[in-house]
Design a protein around this nucleic acid. Structure first.
Lengths: 144, 144
DNA sequence: TATTGTTATACTCTATAACTATA
DNA sequence: TATAGTTATAGAGTATAACAATA
């Protein structure tokens, strides 16, 4: 385990503050107005793991089960996920993203890049490189 | 401006997703249960810049003026900020953090480190170093 | 008896619109 | 006429508690 020395203290504060502010801006920059950040995140997760149960999704997104019930219902109403009975456990359900969701993810990826291009306009190559290197670590941290 | 090539595309997705999830977890890990993430962020901002008007704080935190009015009122009720009339413009007010806020920030910094220590337990030195390097860039991004 | 998911309900945070006071 | 801040109100997102169905 890394030893948290005094210098890291400032880094932690900086990291926390930046993440909170960035998340607030990202909320506003949603590519599809009809989709909340968590709905988008769920679709991204499903694109990565194929399919999952509501409970698994709730744990992965760090949201309570009732919240995930609502989110999945909204996504289903929009035709972005499909709900099927679990083959082995009749209590559970299996959530799978539809082709429409895949197409939407691809489209929003283009739009996000446009927005980010504007934002990284103020960054130099070195800064952007650092961010790129840190992205997977941030993901790991979010999953830990 | 850095050219956003194909490889960056994935980094953007990764970054966005990670920031959203981390922010959700940070919300839960608030050191002082009675303080929202934005309230904490405002205190951090004030600690950095000394004092500011509600309008300035709203812009810095990327929040609308009425929201900042509420936040400042809550902080004042908790004795964490002081409100004074602006010396030159009687429409404006000056918000300053109190000693109590400074003490609380110091205390919460210790608690945050303890929480982070648990989280970075799963990171190796190299990953933590990447995160530390990226922190100031994330901050810059959040301010851009 | 434990677990998965749902329903019903309430809370927190933020936004928009309309208003007041000052510039 | 424009700007800083406030008040009133509404909406989005999430949580907790109680419940149903299945294991």
């Amino acid at each position: 385990m890394p030893d948290l020395s005094h210098g890291d203290d400032a880094a932690v504060n900086s990291l926390r503050s930046a993440v909170m502010r960035l998340s607030r801006r990202l909320k506003h920059q949603r590519v599809d107005e009809s989709l909340s950040p968590t709905e988008m995140s769920v679709l991204g997760t499903l694109a990565g793991c194929g399919s999952a149960t509501p409970g698994e999704l709730a744990r992965k997104e760090h949201v309570q089960p009732p919240s995930m019930t609502r989110i999945v219902a909204l996504l289903e109403a929009k035709g972005l996920v499909r709900l099927e009975p679990h083959p082995e456990d009749r209590r559970q359900k299996v959530v799978t993203s539809t082709e429409r969701a895949e197409a939407m993810l691809a489209e929003s990826r283009r739009k996000r890049n446009a927005w980010l291009a504007g934002l990284v306009d103020g960054l130099d190559e070195d800064e952007w490189a650092k961010l790129r290197e840190a992205a997977p670590v941030l993901e790991k941290l979010a999953h830990l």
